[in-house]
């Protein structure tokens, strides 16, 4: 049974409100990130009780399903569509922006997390390249950080050499999830 992360966050906010009302100062959470293509440690992810429940409204749904199916066989975290009886952890959607330089991004936020896919770049990518971008973002949802290794899916730039999880990615996955 999934314990809804959103409920946990709502509880946290209510607790903070109570403390604030009582005049107790609570320090803000500090940024966790380090830079670019350095080898990053574990990240927060979208996993709830070994599941990621998703909704998607992307034109790249076929590539998304294939990316999902690259991670699911690893067996420790189930990436599956949200249903009426589950809590949505992740939403996948598209933008079309020529003013930014990213092709995809994963972002944690209150409630559900988000993956944004930038059609400005993906429109010119091959099918495997699009799948690679989505698989990379799902890697973040699985708590994987970036690797300074162009032969890893979790390299931070699209000029990586691979379009699916490689040994380094799989090893990191298992170090996190067993």
């Amino acid at each position: 049974m999934t314990f809804p992360r959103a409920q946990k966050r709502i509880g946290k906010v209510l607790a903070v409100l109570g403390l604030a009302a009582a005049g107790i100062v609570v320090p803000a959470t500090q940024a966790l990130a380090i830079d670019g293509c350095s080898n990053e440690g574990l990240k927060s992810g979208s996993v709830d009780d070994h599941e990621i429940r998703y909704t998607q409204s992307t034109r790249y749904s076929r590539e998304f399903f294939q990316a999902r199916d690259q991670w699911n066989p690893l067996g420790r975290v189930k990436i599956a569509a949200d249903t009426g009886s589950t809590i949505n952890d992740l939403h996948v959607s598209d933008v079309n922006k020529s003013t930014v330089t990213w092709s995809g991004r994963w972002e944690a936020s209150a409630g559900q997390d988000d993956i944004y896919l930038n059609g400005h770049f993906l429109a010119g990518y091959t099918y495997p390249e699009v799948r690679g971008v989505i698989s990379h973002e799902l890697g973040h949802a699985l708590r994987l950080g970036h690797f300074d290794n162009r032969n890893a899916l979790m390299h931070c730039s699209d000029n990586r050499n691979v379009t699916g999880p490689q040994t380094a990615d799989v090893n990191k996955y298992h170090s996190i999830w067993g």
Binding site: R9, V13, V16, L17, A20, A21, V26, P27, A28, T29, Q30, A31, L32, A33, K43, S44, T101, W102, S103, G104, R105, W106, E107, A108, S109, A110, N118, F121, V133, H136, E137, H140, G145, H146, C156, S157, D158, N159
Partner: peptide, 25 residues
Amino acid sequence: AVAVGAWFTVPYETSVVHATYAVDL
């Protein structure tokens, strides 16, 4: 009014964005 005011004292929850870059600058 107190509830609205209290809301704006809630500390920010940090979300770190992990972007995959298509363009090198």
